[in-house]
Computed example of a mutant assay.
Amino acid sequence: MFRFEHPIFLYLLVLIPVLAFIHLLLTNRRKKALEEFGNMELLEDLMPNVSFKRPGIKFYFLLLALIVLIFAIAGPQFGSKLQTVKRKGIELMIALDVSNSMMAEDIQPNRLDRSKRAISRLVDKLQNDRVGFIVFAGDSYVQLPITTDYASAKMFLNTITTDAVSKQGTAIGSAINKGIQSFTSDENVNRAIIVITDGENHEDDPVAAAAAAAEKGIKVYTVGMGLPKGAPIPSNNGRSNDFMKDKDGNVVITKLDEATLQQVAITGNGAYIPANNIRNGINNLMDELGGLEKTEFEAKVYADYEDQFQWFVGFVLLLVIGEFLILERKNRKLKHINIFEVKKENKEN
């Protein structure tokens, strides 16, 4: 497992394009100044030992050395082995609606993107808890099995789109049932399911699914994405101001069904969080989840991280030595050697 011990130093990489731009600007100025002074071909004859390419090569050697040095400062490390550790936490399954209605823009930038941002903030607040993702529309699938690897969780989160589930619709009950089945077999672990959707359920009975979860001691929370007044659903053809229409040619308006989501949360012994108060709602949700009794369980993590910066520092030294050995002026003894001219003469013969 690879990681950086001090990843904050990687922000220094923003200096690289700035330095490259400044060098390019100064090089162009120098070239224009020489062109104003006289014809470049004549100037090359008058200055036979001057190289116009070598300063650039030397600069990029140093630039590459700087890039590698920044990586070295960030502290690259490799985890040498997996180790089983004891942790105390809860298990949490997050079910995200990826139906087409989640592309409505009644909350900006759209319901799905706002949902993913909320999940990202929630994952950032987790400590020693297990988390997994379920995506659902007309069907539901496990996108990420339950894990303590939060970095992987956020990576999987970024890949979620409305194409994740081919069958359209909104089957909230199916998502809750899938969540119930997706927890580990560990006993006496507090569990919760968070359903993030616009609530327009068309496929099954989400209240009955929430009741089944509550019977197993699993709390069900709902997060309503959208506004009650609703919004049209953007078409998939990529055209602006083009929306989905029903069979009669009328623009389809998708509305937040708060009543259903509130009933699901009540039945599931959880709470309902409206999208217009998502930030405070997520904080309150984490407070409530934090109040659940933590259970000890085993987790596999990489341990015995070993520093690898010395390899980067060695490469930096090689680059600096290479830059030092490259002279800005041409070598008088070697400047007349031109492999391409020799080949050209042989070809003519």
Score class of each variant (00 low, 15 high):
281 G>R: 05
17 P>W: 10
303 A>E: 12
59 F>Q: 03
123 V>R: 06
144 L>D: 04
2 F>V: 01
215 E>G: 12
246 D>K: 08
201 N>I: 07
83 Q>C: 06
292 L>T: 10
223 V>G: 03
111 R>Q: 02
33 A>R: 15
200 E>C: 02
324 F>V: 15
300 K>S: 15
267 T>D: 03
207 V>S: 07
125 K>S: 14
263 Q>P: 00
144 L>Q: 04
109 P>M: 08
87 R>D: 03
40 M>R: 14
306 E>D: 08
2 F>I: 03
165 V>L: 07
267 T>S: 09
256 L>P: 01
315 F>E: 02
187 E>P: 02
260 T>V: 12
296 E>L: 06
314 G>N: 07
155 M>W: 03
16 I>K: 02
26 L>Q: 12
66 L>E: 05
149 D>F: 06
201 N>V: 01
50 V>Q: 09
318 L>Q: 01
214 A>V: 04
166 S>V: 13
306 E>Y: 08
19 L>M: 13
208 A>Y: 09
90 I>M: 09
215 E>Y: 02
243 F>W: 10
2 F>R: 01
102 M>P: 03
77 Q>E: 14
167 K>C: 02
82 L>N: 13
14 V>H: 09
184 T>I: 01
327 L>V: 10
349 N>Q: 11
214 A>T: 00
256 L>S: 00
56 G>P: 14
146 I>M: 05
275 A>P: 00
324 F>E: 03
294 K>G: 07
312 F>Q: 08
21 F>C: 12
60 Y>R: 05
260 T>R: 07
49 N>D: 12
338 N>H: 12
36 E>N: 14
235 S>G: 12
229 K>L: 09
107 I>K: 01
97 D>H: 02
309 F>A: 14
6 H>N: 15
329 R>W: 07
24 L>V: 11
71 F>A: 15
31 K>P: 08
61 F>E: 05
97 D>R: 00
290 G>A: 04
146 I>Q: 02
281 G>Q: 05
28 N>G: 13
264 V>A: 08
105 E>M: 11
317 L>I: 11
68 V>Y: 01
226 G>N: 01
270 G>D: 05
69 L>D: 03
55 P>D: 08
196 I>T: 01
212 A>K: 13
313 V>W: 14
285 L>I: 05
90 I>T: 11
206 P>A: 04
7 P>T: 00
229 K>R: 11
11 Y>Q: 07
343 K>V: 11
56 G>W: 08
224 G>K: 01
290 G>H: 05
233 I>Y: 06
141 Y>G: 03
320 V>S: 04
279 R>A: 13
195 V>N: 00
